[in-house]
């Protein structure tokens, strides 16, 4: 069966969806990404959908599932590059993709992941300092 490739870059996993996915392919991506997050201890997942011409309720659910599963596995997800026509359609369809973080393009998506990772690490650093002082 076809698979959507998942690239690893440091502590991030990157996926770019370039094909019109049938439902099983979308589900396979969901499973593959989840296993890969666990296997690589990835901290961030970037899914670029700039080549996707539609996002219907099934693909929307897949994106929401990936985001939720990643969060449970301590990784952040950002969906990048949604075409304006797709965004307009999604909202009218009734899907506002709650819980999914988005960015205009891959570059901004990477920035978002890096900065949220940095701020997630900060409180720990403060705790360490406090512990050290005590």
């Amino acid at each position: 069966m076809d698979r959507i490739p998942i690239l690893r870059m440091g502590s991030f996993l990157i996926v770019t969806i370039q094909v019109d996915m049938h439902d099983r392919l979308a589900l396979a991506l969901q499973d593959d990404l989840t296993s890969k997050i666990a296997a690589t201890e990835a901290k961030g997942v970037l899914i670029d959908i700039s080549a996707l011409e539609i996002v219907d309720s099934f693909i929307g659910r897949m994106l929401a599932n990936i985001s939720a599963m990643a969060r449970i596995l301590d990784a952040q997800t950002v969906v990048t590059g949604m075409q304006p026509a797709v965004a307009i359609t999604l909202v009218e369809l009734g899907l506002s993709l709650p819980g999914i973080r988005t960015a205009l393009n891959v570059e901004r998506g990477m920035e978002l992941l890096r900065s949220s990772l940095a701020s997630a690490e900060e409180p720990d650093a403060e705790d360490d300092d406090a512990a050290f002082e005590a």
């Binding site: 439902d23 219907d56 309720s57 099934f58 797709v86 359609t89």
Partner: peptide
């Protein structure tokens, strides 16, 4: 493009 996308998305839901 927006009209195309809307009809395709609706078709996708109903076909599924």
């Amino acid at each position: 493009l927006v009209d195309q996308t809307k009809l395709i998305t609706a078709a996708s839901e109903i076909a599924r």
